[in-house]
Amino acid sequence: MVAFDPQLLWNGVVVGSLIALAALGLTLLFGLLNFINIAYGEYLAWGAYIALGAKWADVPFILAIVLGAIGAGLIAVITDRIVFKQFSDRDPVVLLVVSIGVAFMLRNLIRVVYGGSTHFYNVGGEAPVVFGIRVLPAQVIIVTLSIVILAIVFLILNETRIGIAMRAASDDTDLARIRGIDTKRLVIYVSLIGGVIAGIAGVMLGIDSNINPTMGFLFLIPIFAAVILGGIGDPVGAVVGGYALGIGQNLSIIFIPSEYTPAFALLILIIGLLTRPSGLFGEATR
């Protein structure tokens, strides 16, 4: 057992910021498309690699992040128009299987374009100690960028016509269509927004660790755990679930060896399904 260290709490907030942002994008996609898109992990990876390519071309890092986000958003829209749209009237399980195939294709395309090596953004800078906590510049970027993007997305969802239409269609697609909402066009908007969020989350993940072709796929378990913990299709729940999972995963080091912490997300996923299948804000099972 390890004594409590405030560094663990800060590291948990950083990881939670990553998971919360990625989970928000996935739950928005599920809310309208009604299937778990396994290729979402590859949207993250492509966002990270596009930003890396821009950085190699000496593009300022802030602009590289924007290019990575836009690139991932366009990939999400293109895959939806070319592939998922053709199966939109099929069972969600069929779409799930199709998304696995799309994920393999996108992952191998990364290897073709960028190779299979591991890369780093190398975000340098001094790491000051604040209240006994070592704060890396990369961590400040991750937490700040996550909060800004989360605020923008929730502002869109609550204060814009597109956001209100997205929420209405997520609650009841048929009723939204009857009320005159163009759900087909809305799918494009949601795919773009979800892909952009994934791209930014991918860059943040690359800043926190490294960039490799399987980075998005391996990050899917904590993302799914956060989405299910918060309630599938619930944006607020996904964010809360993401932060809870990130903080809980890091604090679990106090009780269990650090090599077992990756299994924490899977454990939370199982417990969440057994006790609160409707999410944190849903009704608990007895």
Rank of each mutant, 00 (worst) to 15 (best):
L136T: 05
N158F: 06
W56R: 11
D58A: 14
A225L: 07
N210L: 05
L44N: 10
F131I: 09
L24C: 08
N122V: 00
V59N: 10
V187L: 15
L24P: 11
E126K: 10
V140M: 12
A57F: 02
Q86E: 13
A138Q: 14
G241F: 00
V240Q: 06
F224P: 12
V148R: 00
S117D: 14
P213K: 11
P6M: 02
L269W: 04
I141Q: 00
R107N: 08
G279R: 11
A48Q: 05
H119F: 13
D80E: 14
L96F: 15
L8W: 04
T160W: 09
I253Q: 15
Q249L: 13
P277F: 03
L18M: 14
R107F: 00
G194E: 09
F30L: 11
G125I: 12
P137A: 13
G25A: 06
V190E: 02
I221Q: 07
A72V: 05
F120M: 10
V15H: 03
T214I: 12
R286G: 15
L28H: 04
N108A: 13
A284H: 00
V97M: 15
E159C: 01
V93Y: 10
G194R: 01
V2D: 15
L33P: 01
D58M: 01
V59E: 13
V140L: 13
V2R: 13
F131T: 11
V94H: 01
P257T: 11
L52K: 03
L245N: 11
I271H: 01
E126V: 11
V143N: 03
I147K: 06
A226F: 02
L109V: 10
V102T: 14
G231M: 13
A165S: 15
D182S: 09
G282I: 05
A20K: 05
V97Q: 11
A263D: 00
L63S: 07
S146H: 04
V112E: 15
R107Y: 01
G195D: 02
E42P: 07
W56Q: 12
G132I: 06
I228Y: 02
V196Q: 05
L245G: 11
G241P: 09
F120A: 13
P257C: 10
G12S: 09
A225V: 09
R179T: 10
Y121V: 05
G199R: 06
A72K: 08
R185F: 03
I65Y: 02
R276N: 07
I270K: 00
I232P: 00
W10C: 10
P60C: 12
T79E: 08
V236P: 03
L26C: 07
I100E: 10
G31E: 10
I100W: 06
I19S: 06
W10T: 06
L63Y: 07
G132N: 06
V190P: 12
L155A: 13
